[in-house]
Design a protein around this nucleic acid. Structure first.
Lengths: 117, 117
DNA sequence: GTAATATATGAATAAGTGTTCATATAAACA
DNA sequence: TGTTTATATGAACACTTATTCATATATTAC
């Protein structure tokens, strides 16, 4: 680990400014965790279907061609991070996007990956 | 694995519509990979500093309190995904954000995590 | 040339994660 | 009641990944 006494390149005031302006460590961790949840192909596929319409676990398993258990595990992760929400209807658990940010993020993300290649 | 012959819940036409409208598998993978790269606390911290100004590896190591080697490894990952760019100036490698999308994504991501708790 | 500084990188390792399997819970229906 | 269908979940395993250590490359200064 470095110590802040070795800081030489920038002026001391610039360093302290950058450190003061830096986001809180808890926010950094939560933001990274949020992006990490979006950073899995299975979850992206699930979200792309849910962006179209509310779907139950069985339908999502069929559409993504994954086992029910795997889809359920991933839905829990998405639920925990308030990316999808669920409502019960009889035997079914109907999932949908919980957050309007997800669409925006997906669109901007797609712009990026389309630009770089 | 499920097969599409078991699909029962939705009408057949709705299923095929959803599948037809689904993003290509290559795009899903690349989008997930992109978000995964953003999904690490060290990389988020690096990006938050680079959002303020161009910085060399040594400064980033000092500011993030990480070893030079660790920062360099992470910068390579960010470079590979065209999230940061680098220019050489003497002995120094000066890094900056390569993409204006990153700021947007960070802002929307922060909105999300601030809303949910 | 040598020394010092800045950055990059391969290998090893420890920690994290997605999927599968088996099983549990819950609701609907006979 | 028992049976079927839908979903959830703990444990195990295979795979991935972030960091460290050692070292290599590169530029500047002497």
């Amino acid at each position: 680990m470095n110590t802040f006494t070795e800081l030489r390149k920038l002026s001391d005031t610039r360093y302290t400014d950058l450190i003061d302006e830096a986001p809180l460590e808890t926010e950094v961790r939560r933001l990274a965790e949020f992006f990490r949840v979006l950073g899995d192909p299975t979850r992206v596929r699930i979200l792309s279907f849910l962006a179209r319409e509310e779907l139950c676990v069985h339908d999502l398993a069929a559409l993504t061609e994954m086992e029910q258990s795997a889809v359920s595990h991933q839905l829990r992760t998405l639920r925990t991070h308030r990316i999808v929400k669920v409502r019960r209807s009889g035997k079914h658990a109907l999932y949908s996007l919980d957050d309007n940010h997800i669409d925006q993020l997906t669109r901007i993300g797609l712009e990026h990956i389309r630009e770089i290649r």
